[in-house]
Every structure is written in structure tokens, then in C-alpha cells.
């Protein structure tokens, strides 16, 4: 894709945020699209948002489970940016119209104590850079119609990011076995997903090291105080208005998100 085509794709995605109307897969109109096009399109949107006053609060890693990678026919994860307006407080009610077609993923969020600059970051260095761990729910979303995404579409669309709800009980990374510890996701009190932290690339810390090294190759450092969502422990679950989701993480605690009952406008 040339610069013009990339910029057109970025504008279409930005417009989908504003109108709340999803767009066709980018790959349909741009069959020549490659991964570098996708990350460039993502970055154009982030720069646009930063110019409008948003700030970067961290990153997310996506496509970290064997099941998701199989589904997308990829062998690598992807990453997206977390901006300040994507963070929602745990006890607030999220109006469903905030998102186009939201889904929930339970994750163990990392908060960094010091910067991490790849490439060459080891799992040991990644673990040492974590200040504490928080229970979290990621609200993934897609600006692509009906989630009909290829790998290139989701990367261009900020790795299908939507929002984040962080729990408020910090736990030391050395106090929990992130690989073997369990997580149960409840929707309206019913179990809708279970898993172990190791479903995330073997361990969420492996995911952090991958992120640091992948960003490092692009000249980007993970900053102290930033949040990293390393990937979902269970399959994602769709949100309907009025839903309440809770996730409980062994040794880490729980986090809850509520959605307003009213159907969003235009749906």
C-alpha cells in the first residue's frame, strides 16, 4: 500500500470510531496489504489521537492463545496502543454505545516499575521490570463489520482494542505463579470461561518480553508506570447491554465491569 492508501484506511477506521458504524475489512479493498501496512495504519491513528490530546498509557498484546493463532492462521501475536480515554473505572457503568461490538477478555495486567527497551529483553528482565500485577478485563472491539477480521485488519485496527477496566488490588509478580494460576470469567453470575495464565504464550511474562522486543525493534520503549495487557486467558465473550462481567484470578483477586441496560442508539 502506498502512503495515500494507508492514510485512507486510517481515516476510515477513525471515522468508524466517531460514527459507531463498522467498516468493511481493509483487506477487501487492499489485497496487497502486508503487516507493515497494518502497523503503519495503526500508528497514523494513534498519532492523530495524540495530536488531539490523548496520551499513551500502555500497550496490549493480542492473539496470544493457541486457539486464536489457529483461528487467524498466524504464529505470532500482535500489539496495540492503550490510550488514556480507554481506561474505565471499575465501579462505573459503561454505556453500551461506547463500543461498536464489544467482547470481554480476562487478563492479568502488568504495571511497569522501570522502562523496558528491546530488542534483547529476556524473560528475567521482563519479570524484574514489573512493579505489580492487577486483575483486569479488556473490552475488545472491532471497527470492522461483524468481526470479519484478517490478521492485517486487526493489527491496523489497533489490535481490536476497545477499553480496559483495572481491578485495584496490586499483587507482587513474585507472589503468584502466573503460568499455572487459574482464572474464571462470569457473565451475570454464570461461568462463561476458565483458563490458566499459561494460555497466554506459556506465561504472561513471555508476552511482556515479546512486546518489549517487538516494540524495541521499532525504536519504542515501554515506559515506567505504563500498563501492559499481555493477552486473554480465556476465549472472548460477547457483551450484550445490561451484562455484568466478573473475572476472578487465583492469588490476584477479582474485577467487575457493568454495562448499561439500554441498547445503544442505531442498533
Amino acid at each position: 500500500m502506498d502512503a495515500e492508501a494507508r492514510s485512507r484506511a486510517a481515516r476510515a477506521l477513525l471515522e468508524a470510531y466517531e460514527t459507531g458504524k463498522p467498516i468493511d475489512p481493509l483487506i477487501d479493498a487492499n489485497p496487497e496489504m502486508v503487516l507493515e501496512d497494518s502497523y503503519a495504519i495503526q500508528l497514523i491513528q494513534i498519532e492523530h489521537r495524540l495530536a488531539a490530546g490523548a496520551t499513551i498509557k500502555g500497550h496490549k498484546v493480542g492473539l496470544t492463545s493457541a486457539a486464536m493463532q489457529r483461528q487467524m492462521q498466524v504464529t505470532q501475536p500482535d500489539f496495540g496502543h492503550l490510550l488514556d480515554d480507554m481506561f474505565h473505572l471499575e465501579n462505573s457503568t459503561i454505556s453500551a454505545g461506547t463500543f461498536l461490538q464489544p467482547r470481554i477478555e480476562p487478563e492479568v495486567a502488568f504495571v511497569l516499575r522501570r522502562p523496558l527497551t528491546g530488542p534483547g529483553v529476556t524473560v528475567a528482565e521482563a519479570a524484574a521490570a514489573i512493579d505489580f500485577v492487577l486483575p483486569s478485563l479488556e473490552l475488545i472491539d472491532s471497527r470492522i463489520r461483524d468481526w470479519k477480521i484478517s490478521f492485517f485488519d486487526t493489527v491496523a485496527d489497533n489490535a481490536s482494542s476497545g477499553g480496559v477496566v483495572l481491578g485495584s488490588t496490586p499483587v507482587g509478580v513474585q507472589d503468584v505463579d502466573l503460568r499455572r494460576s487459574g482464572c474464571v470469567l462470569y457473565r451475570n453470575g454464570e461461568v462463561v470461561g476458565t483458563g490458566a495464565g499459561g494460555a497466554v504464550l506459556g506465561s504472561p511474562i513471555t508476552s511482556l518480553a515479546w512486546l518489549a522486543n517487538t516494540l524495541g525493534a521499532r525504536g519504542v520503549t515501554l515506559e515506567a508506570g505504563h500498563v501492559v495487557l499481555p493477552g486473554s486467558i480465556t476465549a472472548s465473550v460477547p457483551v450484550t447491554p445490561g451484562d455484568t462481567f466478573s473475572a476472578t484470578f487465583a492469588g490476584i483477586g477479582s474485577v467487575t465491569v457493568r454495562f448499561a441496560p439500554d441498547a445503544p442508539e442505531g442498533k
Binding site: 493457541a66 487459574g182 482464572c183 474464571v184 461461568v191 476458565t194 499459561g198 494460555a199
Partner: peptide, 11 residues
């Protein structure tokens, strides 16, 4: 050697 699935007793 490849992780294929995970779950908890809640399943």
C-alpha cells in the same frame, strides 16, 4: 510441548 488448552475446576 505446545500449550493447546487450559481451564479451571469451574468448567
Amino acid at each position: 510441548g505446545a500449550i493447546v488448552d487450559s481451564a479451571t475446576g469451574a468448567a
